[in-house]
Structure formats: C-alpha cells, structure tokens
Design a protein around this nucleic acid. Structure first.
Lengths: 249, 249
DNA sequence: CGGGATATGCCGGAAAAGGGGTATAGTCAG
DNA sequence: CTGACTATACCCCTTTTCCGGCATATCCCG
C-alpha cells in the first residue's frame, strides 16, 4: 500500500468542513488500514458535555447507546490506559498500562458481545486540554492488522487534529493561555502538593510563612481557582508540575 | 520500504538495556527514515535535572553544549509547540501552533548555522509526567522526507516509550500497594479535588458537613497523609481518580 | 451470632488556609 | 528612565481544615 492513499486521507481531512466529511474520511482510512470501526472522542461523559466535546464514531448504535447511558466515557479502561502513554496500544496489551478491574473486564466482554473485539487506541493528550483518543477496532472474529498499526497511529492523531480544528478546540487563536507560574510560585505549589503546610514550606525555602501564603495565593489567582488543592491539580494537568517532581527523593 | 525494517527497529528498541542500545537503534531508524539527527528528550533544563530526565541525541556537540548552557530545554519553541498538539509537526509549520517571538527566530537561525535545518518533532505528552518529545532533523541543505513523516511519528513515540522504560519513569507505582477508598470517601475526595469545601460537598452529596470531613479524614488515614491536597494527588496518581473525573462537565 | 467495615451524625479546640491591605527592592523590556 | 512584574515581608480577620473523641445503624461474612 502506500503513502499515496495516505495522501488522499490527508487531503480529505484537511478539506473537511464538518463532521460528516471527517467521518467519511475515517471510514475510508479504516478500510485501508484494515479496521471496521473507529471512534474519535474526548474522554468525557458525553451526555453531560453535549456539543462541546469531540465525538465521532461508527460503532454499532446499540453499543454506543449503552456506552452513553452508562457514562462509560469516564471510566472506560481504554481511556484510562491512554492516559498512561503517548503511544498507540492494542487493547490486548492494556494490562501493561493499567490494572484492569472486574468491572473493566465486564465492559470489554460486553463490547465483544456487541461486535467490538480487539482494537488499537491512539492517545491524544495535550497539556491542559480535555484528554482524548482515536480508537480503531474490529469484530471479535477479525484480528488486528499488525503491520498497519504504525500508520494507524499517525492517521488517528491526524484525524484528531482535524477534529480539534472542526470543533474549534485549538486555543492558539483565542486570548486565553495556560497560566504560567513564577519560579517561586511553582516551588511553593510543589511543596504544598507534597502535603506541607505554609510554615513548613517557609522553613524549607527560607522564606516567611506570609510570603509562602502569598505565592500560593497568587498562583491560585493565575489559575482562577480558590483552593490550593485545585491549583496543584491544575499545575499537574498542564505539566507545570509532574508526579515525579512531587514524589521524587 | 517497509514494515520489515520497522520490525527490526521495534526489536532493537525492545531489546535495548541501556541508552547506548537505544541510541544505536535511533541512528538506524534515522537512516531509514531519511534523517541525520534525532533528539529524544524531556523538556527540562537538563543541567539542573541531571540524571533523572530522558535525554538522548546525536546533535552536533557544539549545538548541544550551547543549548544546555542557555537552558533552552524549557523555552525552545519546538518544545512549546509540541505542548499544543499530539501530532508530529515539521518545524516549518510551527507558527501554526505558537506565536514565534524574536528570540525564537534567533534560536532557530542559530541552530541552522550549527547544521540543524528543518526538522520534524513528535510530541510525547502524558498527563502528570514531564513533557517530552522526539525530534528528527536534517542539515539546512537537506529537505524533510515528507513521505516518511507518518512513520517518523510512530518511530518517535515508540522510541520515547522505550526511553521511559529505560529511565524507569513508570516504576514509581510498584513500590507500595495503592490504598483502596470506599465509594463515599472517593466521592468526597473527588469534590475536594475539584476545589469544593466541606460545606459545599455536603450540599452536593446530601450529607452533613461533619460527615464529609470524616470521609476525607479517613481517606487521608488510608493513604497515610495529613492533607487533602496530598490525598487528592495520590488518588490521581494511582488511578483512583482521573483528570477526566475531575474536569468532566 | 458477633466482629469488622461502612456510613452517618455531633462536639470542641487548635491549626491552617483564604482574602483583604500595605510596602520595599530588584529585574527587565520598551 | 519608566512601568510592569517579581520577590520579599508584615498586618488583620474570617473561614476552613485538622485532630481528638463519641455514638448509632447498616451490612456482610465466617
């Protein structure tokens, strides 16, 4: 196969002006890659996020309905796994990424009954944005097209970018930007995230307790939140802090 | 070309037991894809993050030294752009992602003088982890191998995953078993992570304020911590909560 | 049945965090 | 040089959180 057909996919996605165009391109690329189904989605409870969240798929209607009713979008093991890596993964390897609960296995078994067997999910993680992914899947009787997975990785991300454009999720043109903390603010939030109180932090950083409180307060203002718990989580989410920062040493 | 050579790359990366093995595999895949240089890196100031951060490249030494001295790892326009997307991008398209400052152009021009012309960068963003990327580049006289970019996307991510394994970025969670929270404890921690106070949570869940405080207190005990900020972060880290849970609308 | 875990309520004091000002000094870009 | 931003420090006051203990009702499991 080749780059030729991929070129057509690129053109189709870039030319898409609505979700139907994008869906058509996805159906074609599925054909080429050797998949029956695709699902391009933000990881949210779609019923409560109607409209604003990316959501495009050609799964069997019955499965999609059940999925929405149960609000699986927020607990789906496939989605959880996609938060642990940036590389696409076959569903059969999910247990390398997350611990599967009994409920997870039930969901997977149920999907299998509904005609969704093995699949390949491409994470689409962007710091500070709603997490998303593009999944490709086949019926239980049809194996994954192993050799196509590298191209599926690319096609999935390219399609997700196309969806972001269509849903106007990209923030470059808008004025709102991810808050940037000063070094001191970040230091203080880091120690707060480690569970230290203001007084402890002041000893660690050699500041007065008041100054620590001030830095944390101002960090909260930048994120537009009013609790240090939330500022720490937001900083974690957009990459200002990382788990390794917090737990190391 | 094909999947055959990609298969060898997969084997080489998976078999790698140290960074030299990985570097050798990268050199080979660069050859195949049509690039001279690669850079697999966490986006940090490498001089102050010695040892723990992923960092592997075959850039000209002179450029790398300059880069480190100036601590470009944290302000590099290529890195900033890679925080805005999950899809690999040619450097010539960077301005679609971020606004390039005068300083950015200076860095790019300087790189060009040092033998780094156009390149292709694959973002590797994972929530809660240090942001990273894998870049492929050529000298100024050599154009990007356009048709290879989809495979470069995959190879870059695969290599980054290999690097994460070698640098043991994912190992922290195997130390101790994650405490299990009761449903109510989890509910309360979830709302606390969303920045709600006990009184608000009590209204949301239909409990008394005291009971909410009690659940949170007991959740803290299970994690062996003494602050709600830390319990929320620990729960996020071990998957008891997810960013999607917290930010879902 | 009895023990353990869970969920719920309440009290009170000590400590911490949130929200409002004010002020000085340094840095850096325009 | 000026103005914006940063880092530092202090004050006051209110609200929230933390910590101890106490008490009841449910449910499941052996």
């Amino acid at each position: 196969m080749g780059m030729h057909t991929m070129g057509q996919f690129v053109q189709a996605v870039e030319a898409a002006t609505n979700s139907d165009d994008l869906a058509a391109a996805m159906v074609e690329i599925c054909e080429i890659l050797g998949f029956q189904y695709f699902a391009l989605t933000h990881h949210v409870d779609i019923l409560s996020a109607s409209g604003t969240a990316i959501r495009l798929h050609n799964y069997p209607a019955q499965w999609a309905d059940y999925y929405d009713e149960q609000a699986l979008g927020i607990s789906d093991p496939v989605h959880r796994a996609s938060h642990k890596t940036s590389l696409g993964f076959p569903w059969s390897r999910m247990h390398d990424l997350i611990a599967l609960t009994a409920g997870d296995r039930r969901v997977l078994a149920l999907g299998s009954e509904q005609g969704i067997g093995d699949g390949f999910t491409v994470p689409a993680n962007i710091p500070g944005e709603t997490l998303g992914s593009c999944s490709f899947a086949n019926g239980a009787d049809r194996p994954l097209p192993e050799t196509m997975l590298p191209l599926a990785q690319w096609a999935g991300l390219f399609a997700f970018e196309g969806a972001r454009r269509l849903w106007s999720t990209r923030k470059i043109d808008t004025e709102e930007e991810a808050p940037v903390l000063t070094d001191r603010q970040r230091d203080c939030i880091l120690w707060a995230a480690r569970g230290k109180g203001d007084w402890e932090i002041s000893r660690i950083l050699g500041l007065s307790e008041e100054t620590v409180a001030r830095h944390i307060k101002q960090a909260c203002e930048r994120y537009g939140v009013n609790k240090r718990t939330l500022v720490a989580i937001r900083a974690l989410f957009d990459g200002t802090l990382t788990f390794t920062d917090i737990f190391k040493r």
